[in-house]
Design a binder for these strands. Structure first.
Lengths: 327, 327
DNA sequence: CTGAAAGCGCTAACAA
DNA sequence: TTGTTAGCGCTTTCAG
């Protein structure tokens, strides 16, 4: 591997000059700058970013911690963060927490050892106030897990829910169900609130038996919709906590030959990959992963350049979008 | 940030001793070893892997270059590689090439600058012989793009195709179609060969009009199956180049109310995420991403430990598996 | 078993 | 504008 010293020797200058020339500092003559650059590329020089990082006390790697990159939602997020970071001259180190808070902490420690420039994280658990600050690196998180000082990227779930429920109401549905996710999920609670409010605003009666919580998966959606549809006073409009739940519901409705989207209205949440497959073609509230990733990187870059990156906690709101498809 | 020098001062030993103790070298007394470890954790010491990497002339990061991590197939691969690497004490740097060979080269250069311990790559283009060797780091690739000296993880597509086609034959189908992917894809060519051979072995007639190439996507599958089914002498068994093609075919067959799996037999390839969704439930030849990722990391670790990592090119064969589902 | 010291490749004062 | 020099935090000879 060839180093700046090799170039210096070849060019007959000191290696500090080479460093300056290569980094396009102002205090080098245009002549030597050109010469060094030419020489460097001729000799096939590749800077050693490790050495640079050691001096700078920071690498140009942004750490990204996600519960599971193979999950379609996070896969999209990973791509978007990774591409945005690359564009800004940063690399990304992606680690799966496996939905395990303990493992997540461990992974953060590993990233700290790598002296990452910052950490972008989708937290799996709640953190005690001050956890992020103690890390000593800029942190940007998706969703709001605590009162801790960090910058958060949030999706306006109130708005998203309102869009979906209003759409169901506009289409003429009267008995609208809320097939939610886990009851401990803050996002889920937010959506329920907005659900209730939207019904109220439209003077639509709220039926308590049509509200349920459960797993964020297809099986749970299937079972819950089955129970509702075969019970008394079944719903005609259905709002689900995510697309997996909606998928399970859709499966049941198709098995029983309900006619969608007219007889029954169904809307999922997230708009993940499979929702727009031709065979599924499901309406959903889209969480725009591309924008979320971009915003997270932007916020991170700002913090990195900042003198006091830990000082301020910002909340960045991203707007969801209702996507109506044939089902 | 606290360093080994801080610990050394606190412990009243030289910092070389601290380094030895922390790395559990044999030439430290058990007593000081314990003491240093205790002190280190008390003081909240986190090693600076950058400094270590600079001395070692290599980081503990394994680079992973994939066309697109948001593609379900590669998302699975990314997770499996990343987890396997973590278990071995390595971190992963994942970069998308975006299916662009030029960008891919650029990304490799960036990884070289990071002095990654090795690069695991799904190549997008063909490389001139020697490209990999010239990189100067261990390389493990998925699929075989050239005659270059590198270790390759390959899936036995001959076997996979044979499993699928034999299954269609055993189920009694006689006019079997090959709805392949791009005709330039080596894997696709391999599958066609095996397709022909399996028919021959079973004395099943090969119909040339039932063989086609095209895009690896649902639209292409839909169009091609439509043409075949509405033309003369339509197929009854269908083998597709990947699951997207099969999904398009499935959509057409369902629209036209063909009864699967008895009237028409359909088998896809890859067994990606959506194939086992309840609403799709499609048979497919599974490329085991978990095993592939694990094998890639194993091979990489072996090379990293090796003295002459570039010396030998190994081919590691992974067995695909036929997964039969309700469609 | 431990300490002293060199050096990994680079950046950034400080001098010249 | 350029050269000299001091580190960044760590591993690893080489002495002791």
């Amino acid at each position: 591997m060839i180093t700046i010293k090799d170039i210096a020797r070849e060019a007959g200058v000191s290696y500090a000059t080479v460093s300056r020339a290569l980094n396009n500092k102002k205090d080098v003559s245009e002549k030597t700058r050109i010469k060094i650059h030419k020489l460097a590329s001729e000799m096939g020089y590749r800077p050693n970013v490790i050495a640079r990082s050691l001096v700078m006390k920071r690498s140009n790697i942004i750490g990204l911690i996600l519960p599971d990159v193979s999950n379609p939602f996070f896969a999209d997020l990973a791509r978007s963060v990774s591409n945005a970071a690359n564009l800004a001259g940063f690399s990304t180190m992606i680690i799966n927490s496996g939905w395990d808070p303990a493992n997540e902490q461990q992974q953060m420690r590993i990233m700290l050892e790598q002296r990452v420039a910052g950490i972008i994280i989708k937290p799996t658990g709640y953190y005690a106030t001050g956890t992020y600050e103690r890390m000593g690196v800029p942190i940007v998180a998706f969703w709001h897990p605590s009162e801790d000082k960090a910058t958060y990227i949030e999706v306006d779930h109130k708005k998203g829910t309102q869009l979906a429920v209003q759409n169901l109401i506009n289409r003429g549905f009267k008995r609208i169900a809320f097939i939610g996710g886990t009851d401990t999920s803050p996002a889920n609670q937010l959506r329920l609130l907005s659900f209730q409010k939207t019904l109220q605003t439209n003077s639509i009666q709220l039926h308590h038996h049509l509200i349920s919580f459960g797993g964020f998966n297809a099986e749970s959606g299937y079972e819950r919709i089955k129970k509702l549809m075969s019970g008394p006073n079944p719903p005609d409009g259905i709002f689900c906590g995510n697309d997996y739940i909606a998928l399970g519901a859709l499966q049941y409705l198709r098995e029983k030959n309900y006619r969608l989207p007219n007889e029954v209205g169904l809307i999922g949440y997230d708009d993940v990959f499979f929702s727009h497959l031709p065979m599924i073609s499901m309406s959903s509230v889209r969480q725009p992963r591309d924008i979320m990733g971009q915003r997270a990187v932007d916020a991170m870059l700002e913090k990195i350049d900042d003198e006091m990156p830990m000082a301020e906690a910002k909340k960045i709101m991203v707007e969801p979008e209702l996507v109506i498809r044939s089902t």
